[in-house]
Amino acid sequence: MLLAVVAALLPRPGRLPRYAPVLHRADAPRLFELIDEVAAAVGTTGVHAVVVDAAHNAGVSAYGIRGRRVMYLGVTLWEVLSPQERVALLGHELGHFANGDVRSAFLTHGALRTLAHWYSFLVPHPAVTLVYLWVNAMVFLPRWAVYGLFVVLDGLTMRASQRAEYLADSGAARAGSTAAAVTMLDRLLIGDAVETHLRLESMAATRADSGSRSREAREAIERELWEGLAARIGSIPETEYERRRRVSARRGHSVDDTHPPTHLRRRCLAAADPQPAKVVCDASRTQSIAAELAPARAELARRLIRYNAD
Rank of each mutant, 00 (worst) to 15 (best):
S284Q: 07
A172S: 12
T206P: 00
A137I: 04
R68Y: 05
Y166T: 03
A26S: 15
P274N: 05
A208W: 04
A98Y: 03
L200M: 10
H259E: 14
R174N: 08
W134N: 00
D36V: 05
G95K: 13
A172K: 00
D186L: 04
F140V: 05
P276N: 00
V50Y: 01
F32P: 02
A168D: 12
L107D: 01
A20T: 11
L89H: 07
L293H: 01
A105W: 06
I65L: 15
L269Y: 13
S210M: 09
L77S: 05
A145L: 15
V247G: 05
L149T: 09
G46Y: 09
T262C: 08
E216H: 03
A39L: 09
G148T: 01
E37L: 14
P17E: 00
L3V: 06
P13C: 11
R297N: 10
R246E: 14
S82R: 07
T157Y: 11
T157M: 08
E224S: 02
T286A: 13
G91Q: 06
V182F: 12
R251F: 05
A175Q: 12
D257Q: 08
R243K: 03
R30M: 10
G95F: 03
Y72W: 07
L16S: 02
A294H: 01
P29G: 08
F106S: 14
Q287G: 12
P276T: 00
P261D: 08
S177N: 06
W134F: 15
R243V: 02
R174P: 03
L130N: 12
L90I: 11
I236R: 09
A62P: 01
V152D: 08
G100W: 09
E195W: 02
L185S: 02
A220Y: 04
V38F: 13
R251Y: 10
W134H: 08
W118Y: 02
V128L: 03
P13D: 05
A8S: 14
A271M: 10
A298G: 11
R218E: 13
A40S: 04
D209N: 13
Y132P: 00
H117P: 01
L90F: 10
H92I: 05
V280R: 03
H125G: 15
D209R: 05
R12P: 05
L122W: 07
I236H: 07
A180V: 06
M1C: 12
Q287A: 15
Q84S: 13
R251H: 07
S202E: 11
G148K: 07
V146R: 06
M203N: 01
A298V: 14
S61F: 12
V135D: 02
A20G: 12
E216C: 09
S288W: 11
A41Q: 09
R245S: 10
V255P: 03
